[in-house]
Design a protein around this nucleic acid. Sequence first.
DNA 1: GATAAGCTAAGTATAAATACTTAGAAAAAT
DNA 2: ATTTTTCTAAGTATTTATACTTAGCTTATC
Lengths: 212, 212
Amino acid sequence: MKKISIAIIDDHQLFRDGLLSLLSAYDDDYDLIGSFNSGASFFEFLEKKESPDVLLLDLTMPEMDGFSVIEKIKKKKLKLKIIVLSMHDDGSYILKAARKGADGYLPKNVDAAELREAIFKVYDGEKHFSAEISSRMFDVLSIEGNMSSKLTPKEKEVLLHIAKGLTTKEIASKLFVSSRTIETHRLNMMKKLNVKNSSELISTAMKLRLIK
Amino acid sequence: MKKISIAIIDDHQLFRDGLLSLLSAYDDDYDLIGSFNSGASFFEFLEKKESPDVLLLDLTMPEMDGFSVIEKIKKKKLKLKIIVLSMHDDGSYILKAARKGADGYLPKNVDAAELREAIFKVYDGEKHFSAEISSRMFDVLSIEGNMSSKLTPKEKEVLLHIAKGLTTKEIASKLFVSSRTIETHRLNMMKKLNVKNSSELISTAMKLRLIK
DNA sequence: GATAAGCTAAGTATAAATACTTAGAAAAAT
DNA sequence: ATTTTTCTAAGTATTTATACTTAGCTTATC
């Protein structure tokens, strides 16, 4: 049987080393072709060498984050499977990865056997999102499901000011527009997120990471 | 020179393996006496064997989390240094660890040299919080500094309902008290957190992880 | 050039929140 | 047993937010 070729992208050594160790438990099944500390160095590598079958990818990295790496892979129409291996068991992160086209998502507490299962599954064209992961995605989806569309830049700007405790009037004078405009923005956001008032707007927005 | 004895507590294999790999870079300096997947198994080990000099500890674990491990160590008055090695670069986590008595805090992107430096520093009785870490702590402290005291259980209950979008009247009837009582709770919280209105109350509370 | 999306703004009425304070009863802590 | 904290509640005036709509103008997008 052909070995599955694997690459790792992660900015921290600890994680890369840990993954290497997990992979080595089933050494005969894999062919590790590279371990990279950034998306850039991975794409550099691809210019000379062949693409791996499966990419193990961290999300939070400086400069080019995991999401951008997925985007670039899809843009280049590379035929490799992507497993996101992230420290964030946060629903919105997982969902975003899935939307961008990740084939699997593993939380931090993987063991060698679970990792192996995921790799084989995505290599065979299946998706791998664990039950726990799926339920978290579901939480966010249930909020988003009621969200008719994304917030516009101006709306986000207003949202930030609301979170800071500014009143409608204060925000209006800060942005040089009428109070009614700010009210409209706020009310539009409340409709989009399907919430009843400003307090729920803030808490829902923070859950969805529209503000941090 | 005597080797520094080290133990690791982390629930995920990937992390433990990664740490082992990082430690092996300066193999001669350390004496790894144990690697544990839970606080319980570490304390079990301590009943028979001697305590390590330095403990590398993860925060987020099932059952007994890292904070509880620190507490138990302090209660038992064990003389070992604790370095928290966490995936959370979140100010409130770091601060909580420091308050409980952690001697150092390292973010996820440690390399072997940084880890070594931290281990030697805490072994010598110093504290090790990197500049980045310290600044995050400072962010939370600056909010907390203006917080006269903690929220009471009832206040937290009211806070949750506010975050869900309930009005004062709705919360009052839900908790079988007068609207004025709920108002008092809300206003007291606003004073404690030094915020101007409900929106800022929610955003600040979420930053401080008073609600999730 | 047409279509869609985003930003701007307003009318009118009602509901809710906020600013300021004070204070008694109950529960918890010491 | 006493002190402290928490929970409860209210008065009055003012400010802010919300409900429900409509709509012109500007800026992208195709």
